[in-house]
Write a protein that binds this DNA or RNA. Sequence first.
DNA 1: AGAATAGTGTCTTTTAGACAATATAGG
DNA 2: CCTATATTGTCTAAAAGACACTATTCT
Lengths: 259, 259
Amino acid sequence: MEQDYLKNNPLILGEKEFLQNVSIDNVIFGYHEKELKVLLQKPQGLSKWLLPGGYIKKTEEISAAAERIAKERTGLDNLFLLQFKSFGKPDRLQDPAFTPESLSKLSNMNINAVNWLFEYHVSVCFYTLTEFSKVNPKGDFYSEQCSWWGINEIPDMLFDHRLIITEALKSLRLHLYHYPIGLNLLPKKFTLPEIHALYETILDRELDSRNFSKKLIKTGIIKKLTEKKSIGAHRSPFLYKFDNNVYKEALENGMALII
Amino acid sequence: MEQDYLKNNPLILGEKEFLQNVSIDNVIFGYHEKELKVLLQKPQGLSKWLLPGGYIKKTEEISAAAERIAKERTGLDNLFLLQFKSFGKPDRLQDPAFTPESLSKLSNMNINAVNWLFEYHVSVCFYTLTEFSKVNPKGDFYSEQCSWWGINEIPDMLFDHRLIITEALKSLRLHLYHYPIGLNLLPKKFTLPEIHALYETILDRELDSRNFSKKLIKTGIIKKLTEKKSIGAHRSPFLYKFDNNVYKEALENGMALII
DNA sequence: AGAATAGTGTCTTTTAGACAATATAGG
DNA sequence: CCTATATTGTCTAAAAGACACTATTCT
């Protein structure tokens, strides 16, 4: 991991290897037991937090760059990243916490103010949603910390990264009405209460369980199994699984789920 | 106009003034009398057509760049441009029709293969919709032609510009279900048959006129006037206008219009 | 009067939304 | 038997969708 990041280190490779004036930022949402969180990093020596982001190699597509960056910077793999918006303002990267001094200290290199990293970068942003209890995010070489933050408790962020998170959340919620989610998020076999809680958490509002089940089942996207899940006490709920064909079709062409 | 473009000419100013590896492309849809068209340019000496696009100055936001570029390259002003997607693949700009020779000929300058213009550019794309009968698009200094093309008769396009048009059209159609359109497109006072035709044209399908009117009026976004429009023969339809407050609110927070 | 287009109403089916009692498994 | 949770049905209101006749204006 660390080797990977050093091997691809923009501070070392610089503008020979990477595109200039464009960058990638990933908003990685994590869900677990009715909690929606977002994965953030804190560079050593800086006081603010950062989205896991990076630069695009001259040889790769932007979507591939987003995946590589997510892996290198957090250790998370096989994320289903969706591009949602690009951000570009001349002063995006001007932040009192991000200076040649802080960056020099962080990297143990001599970074000066005309370094390309301080230039105006247009950031192409992606978001994804994953199960955060199973994954163990690892910060990279430069990150002092890499951790999940509750969506309502975002710490002080560098640059315009708070805005980017807000926009990503908007996109995620809009997405929910047109496309299926949950495949990479719930266990292969899951219960109705589980997927119900997932939707409630993302939308941050209550959904009538009777109406929710009716609608979701009517889309044909989930199939009831004969098995039940045995949880600690009381009644064991039936298990369901996604119908892969319907799911794939809905991902490509959209679906109507008015919840 | 020509002076403006020369003043801002990327071929002359180059990487000192503009961001590298990022560009803007605008998909300008035009509507008039049941026809949906898109504005394309053909550079002198090239055999393929191009979206009006350009580069971002180091001092401007991407949205401002999109507006400036639209104006410089087509003469169109006050367009309501919406960012819809960014495109980035290493070989995006590799096209047998786009070579140092063709560009040299086009610009009367000596452009060689290592010029920054041939590098991998991530294109941030915007689209807009305008009335094409009122506007007289002017090509810029480098464009031999600048003209409207029917949405189903797109000519041979340079680079990935055909894909960009396809994606823009998808976005426009999706947009139609969530946001109002027409304010910059129809005359201030318009008739029900006119706005009906507009929606039918964009969606490329028939909409029952009775149901369409009912739904549109129920949203409160249009108001009936007492005047009628007199068109050549037969019955004169009533005029309507948009309710500016409702329209603005719907633009910001979305609306439900299931048509 | 006739032709062409604008404008509008009703019925049926589907969907949304509100609402709570019953069934079941584990203790 | 008790408790906690899963599951499911009905009613009403609203909306969607199918459908065609009447009104008006101009010629």
